[in-house]
Structure formats: structure tokens, C-alpha cells
């Protein structure tokens, strides 16, 4: 078993066709992402069948580019890794079948990776992990607090009971008639707004690390309708700031409490919403005077990419957790 193994990783779980080459789980040799964002924009969201159609057109191009940029050929690759779930089934299938073809053609190990494990491990390309650690995963499909005692050991201690944080952003953005994807737009508007409306914070039960954002989303939409009905003047920036403050306060406080309760060494923030400026700032402020080391990935590692899949796969490679050629896409895959 090599210690500095070279892994070719593939990620096609949603609307990015991505491939990357990662050395030893920590060194990024190439990272290619073909995004379909502009294609889905006119439909106001990701259309699964269209995503799959684009993945199959991009897949070999993206893999070739990843190898080229790493200065490698398939002969240099020790294992192929792929996101097996969760995600859109038709989209996942392209990556999974391409990965199986490569593993079979070159007789090398095949590794299946959980998409969220990938988001967490994106951080290891920047800095080594120290256990125990806590990870806050926030994206369009996920809001989870994951406790890790060791590499590859995941315990979900909190999750959303309804909408994911990113989903709430998208729905509120839609109600405010903002362009897709709405998350970054709300974040930008919120920078110029004030929290005038003091929307509810869903703390749930006292000891729960779970989240809930659907009540907040409804409160924002009701407030907007009310303002319109009464013909009152309002600034969309203030609505955005009020919504964002509510989301961030709950995310940050629950995360803070968990890091204290569990006495972790590091807090890793992962997933697309970790690109949110307001969230980054609030976390930095909250953890400034603590012993918890805050790790937030650079922007290009926050959104979906294959480098993170390669980083997470390295752990499975060293445990020889290989998959056989029956590997299938698993849209509802559980973590841990």
C-alpha cells in the first residue's frame, strides 16, 4: 500500500461535472469543474434530466483535463473514486459508470464516497485534521452537524427537520423575485440591510442540535405579502438581512454549543453555503476567543468539486474499503 497514493476522483451528484487528481489525500494536483449553472438558470433550478444529459457530454472531457493538468496518465493512477450518493440519481449514474469503466479497464481499486464526507474532507486539502472535531455542513440539500472521533468516522448529531439552509435561501430568494441561484444574492443584499423585522429563531428543544428553517421561510414570505398589501415602503435589503441574521444566529449558536459540549479541537465548515460572507464573519467572531480552531475552506472548495471526493477517498483507500463492479448510484446514501 502506497502512502502517497494518487487518486482520480469524479463527482456528478448535481449540476457540476467534476474530476480531480489528489495525492495522499492532502495534495491537490488538479481540480476541474464544468458547471451547468447557466443552463439551469432559465428553468429557475436544476432540472435532473437536463443535468444528466450534460454530464454524459462532459464526462470524458473533464477527466482528460484533470489528468492533463496533473501531468499524468491513467497509468499513474492508483485508485478511482466517485461520489455514490446522495444526489440526483441520473446525475450520479454518469460518474459511477465512468468510474467503474476506468477501474475495470485499468484493473485498479474503485472507491465510493459519500458526498458530505467529501465536503468535510475538502478542508484536509488545506490543513490536517485534529480529533475530535465537529463539522457544520450547510448546502442546498444539507444542514448537518457531524461529530468525528477519527478519520472516516462520522456521527450525525444534528440535522434539519425540514428545509436545508440553502433550500430556505433559494425559496426566500424566489419569493423576493431574485435570480437563481438566490443564496449569494441574498448574502450580498444582506450586507446593505438592517435586521428590522426580527424573524423567529427556531431553537427547538433545549438539548437538540437539530435545525428547522421552514417556519422562518414562511415568516419572511408572510411579511413580504403583508408589506405589499398595506402598500408600505420596504427595502429588499432589510428583508434579506433580517432573514439571513435569523438563519446565521441559529446555525452559529447551535454549532457553538455543540463544540463546547463535545469539547472538540476543530470546527470544520463545509458545503456550498459556507461561501456565505455573513456566515463566515459570524463564525469568525463567535470562535475568536475560544480554543476551537475554525476551518473554513477557500471558496473554490466550498462548492461541489471532485478534489474533495479524492481527499475523502484517501481514507477509504488506506482502509482498503474498495467497491466491486456492482457499485450503483445511491441517491439516499446515509453517512457513517
Amino acid at each position: 500500500m502506497k502512502t502517497n497514493e494518487i487518486i482520480l476522483a469524479i463527482e456528478t451528484s448535481c449540476d457540476e461535472t467534476a474530476a480531480a487528481v489528489v495525492k495522499g489525500g492532502t495534495e491537490l494536483l488538479s481540480n476541474v469543474v464544468a458547471t451547468q449553472m447557466d443552463i439551469h438558470q432559465k428553468f429557475g433550478g436544476v432540472v435532473p434530466e437536463i443535468a444528466s444529459r450534460h454530464h454524459i457530454e462532459q464526462i470524458t472531457l473533464v477527466i482528460e483535463q484533470a489528468l492533463d493538468e496533473a501531468g499524468m496518465t491513467m497509468e499513474d493512477i492508483d485508485a478511482v473514486a466517485v461520489t455514490e450518493g446522495p444526489g440526483l440519481v441520473g446525475a450520479l449514474l454518469i460518474g459511477v459508470n465512468a468510474a467503474k469503466s476506468l477501474a475495470y479497464a485499468h484493473d485498479i481499486p474503485l472507491i465510493g464516497v459519500h458526498h458530505i464526507a467529501g465536503h468535510i474532507y475538502a478542508n484536509r486539502l488545506e490543513q490536517e485534521f485534529r480529533f475530535p472535531l465537529l463539522s457544520l455542513v450547510v448546502s442546498g440539500g444539507h444542514t448537518e452537524l457531524i461529530y468525528m472521533r477519527d478519520h472516516g468516522d462520522y456521527e450525525v448529531i444534528g440535522e434539519t427537520r425540514d428545509d436545508a439552509a440553502g433550500e430556505a435561501y433559494d425559496k426566500v430568494a424566489k419569493a423576493l423575485a431574485l435570480p437563481y441561484p438566490g443564496g449569494p444574492v441574498i448574502d450580498r443584499l444582506a450586507q446593505d440591510g438592517d435586521d428590522l423585522y426580527n424573524f423567529p429563531r427556531a431553537w427547538l428543544e433545549k438539548d437538540s442540535y437539530d435545525f428547522s428553517f421552514s417556519g422562518l421561510k414562511t415568516a419572511v414570505i408572510n411579511k413580504l405579502n403583508q408589506l405589499k398589501q398595506k402598500d408600505e415602503e420596504y427595502r429588499i435589503e432589510d428583508l434579506a438581512a433580517s432573514f439571513q441574521n435569523s438563519v446565521i444566529e441559529v446555525l452559529v449558536e447551535k454549532t457553538y454549543k455543540a463544540t463546547m459540549d463535545l469539547d472538540v479541537k476543530q470546527l470544520i465548515v463545509a458545503g456550498g453555503v459556507s461561501a456565505n460572507k455573513g456566515l463566515r464573519q459570524a463564525l469568525q467572531d463567535r470562535f475568536k476567543h475560544t480554543d476551537v480552531e475554525l476551518m473554513i475552506p477557500p471558496l473554490y472548495l466550498c462548492t461541489d468539486n471532485a478534489a474533495m471526493i479524492g481527499a475523502a477517498a484517501s481514507i477509504e483507500y488506506h482502509k482498503q474499503h474498495y467497491k466491486d463492479l456492482k457499485l450503483n448510484a445511491n441517491p439516499g446514501l446515509m453517512l457513517g
Binding site: E49, R53, I56, I59, S101, Y104
Partner: peptide, 19 residues
């Protein structure tokens, strides 16, 4: 079947490319 065609095509295409 859209999904069915893509499974065969992804396999054939990736193998042709890599070989």
C-alpha cells in the same frame, strides 16, 4: 429509456476514451 441509454453509453464512451 434515457437512463438506460446513458448507462451503456457512459460505459462504452469511457472505455473507448481510456483504452
Amino acid at each position: 429509456s434515457f437512463t438506460g441509454i446513458r448507462i451503456g453509453m457512459t460505459t462504452a464512451k469511457t472505455m473507448a476514451w481510456t483504452l
